[in-house]
Amino acid sequence: MEVLIAILVGFLYAAGVYMILRRSIVKFIIGIILLSNATNLLVFLSAGLTAGSPAFLSDQVSSQQEFSDPLPQALVLTAVVIGLGIVVFTIALKYKFFEVTGADDLDQLKPTDNQK
């Protein structure tokens, strides 16, 4: 299962990087979403996957193998929330940018760089 998810993470990273390299800002945002999901899965995977076992040790569950680490899940939850906030802000910024300039092309951002 770990191997499968690792491959999925790889695919998500590849797709995210591809989308980020596109010129359209909307596609850039999609790329960011893909990358952030890939990263979340990576963090989630970092403690290994133990299906169906509780996140604490008790009389029934005593060995390390049967114990699932709750920390990465808490981390992923936090990261998802932060990711939501950032994507929301990015979309709102993109929308405002589109309103002001009518452009969805990163090439049209050039003027701020080389202005004399």
């Binding site: 906030g85 929301v88 979309i91 709102a92 929308y95 405002k96 309103e99």
Partner: peptide
């Protein structure tokens, strides 16, 4: 608050 703020900032002209 953030959900509403997001919605309004996308809807507002």
């Amino acid at each position: 608050g953030i959900t509403i703020l997001f919605f309004l900032s996308l809807k507002r002209r």
